[in-house]
């Protein structure tokens, strides 16, 4: 019998199917990918968020309550810069070194301002794409969360920046044991580098949770687990998944 807190591959598949179903009903963006060749399924979703939403409490508040949203834009001015922005600016500077400034200037075009185009300063400059994948780990017999966060040019946000971006409630935990929690690994199905929330604590966590729930203990497994660990990497789970 499987250890408390773990699930079988078949259980994962049916949980994942239900999760994707619920998502499509509420347009939550999760998709079920079926890899027939590898006899595997995984869930994935992309979310686009302003770069600072993870570390900016004010921004989070406004997201929670769209009904009373503050006057929109220019959010580029509202958002306070964070460590993240400094890091990315440094990256941008380094990136720029490959061609000297003269070359860049030379490539710029002199063009009359397009009067029908809104002033781009009014747009939020930097947004990040969060790509989440949920896979099943045979060896741990639990689901595993993979995430990549990248800028609009496709550059991945490095691991230490992702640590810095995680909410303060997770910072203490990360400080003590960050390497056992969030590290860069190869995506086992796609072979690309991804950040992985390490599955070694998932079984323990879920056995605690399942112990306290009666009856249909496993039907909320994915949502319960994700709502616990997801916020570390900017993933929030709608209550709609809890049945």
């Amino acid at each position: 019998m499987a250890a408390a807190g773990s699930i079988s591959a078949d259980e994962f598949r049916s949980l994942a199917e239900k999760f994707a179903d619920t998502s499509s009903k509420i347009d939550d963006g999760w998709h079920l990918e079926i890899l027939a060749s590898q006899d595997s399924v995984y869930l994935w979703r992309k979310s686009i968020l302003p770069r600072s939403s993870q570390s900016n409490e004010q921004q989070k508040e406004s997201q929670k309550d769209p009904g009373s949203a503050p006057p929109p834009v220019p959010s580029g001015h509202v958002v306070t810069p964070t460590k993240m922005s400094e890091t990315t600016e440094i990256c941008a500077q380094l990136d720029g070194q490959q061609l000297n400034v003269h070359d860049w200037d030379e490539m710029e075009m002199e063009e009359d301002e397009d009067e029908q185009c809104m002033p781009t300063v009014l747009l939020e400059r930097e947004v990040l794409t969060y790509e989440y994948h949920i896979l099943y780990s045979e060896s741990y017999a639990v689901p595993v969360l993979y995430v990549n966060i990248y800028k609009q040019d496709g550059k991945l946000v490095p691991l230490d920046t992702v640590w810095e971006m995680s909410p303060s409630s997770f910072q203490k935990l990360l400080g003590e044991d960050k390497w056992t929690i969030l590290t860069q690994q190869e995506h086992p199905l796609l072979g690309r580098p991804f950040l992985q929330l390490h599955p070694c604590h998932t079984g323990d966590l879920m056995s605690q949770v399942l112990k306290n729930s009666a009856g249909n203990i496993k039907q909320n497994y994915l949502a319960t687990w994700l709502s616990t660990v997801g916020p570390m990497v900017g993933l929030h789970i709608s209550p709609n998944y809890i049945t």
């Binding site: 009067e115 794409t129 991945l156």
Partner: peptide
């Protein structure tokens, strides 16, 4: 007159 919000390009790592 009307002003339009231009597209902002986003390139997934997979495209590169």
């Amino acid at each position: 007159h009307i002003q339009y919000a231009p597209f902002s390009s986003a390139v997934d790592p997979g495209f590169w």
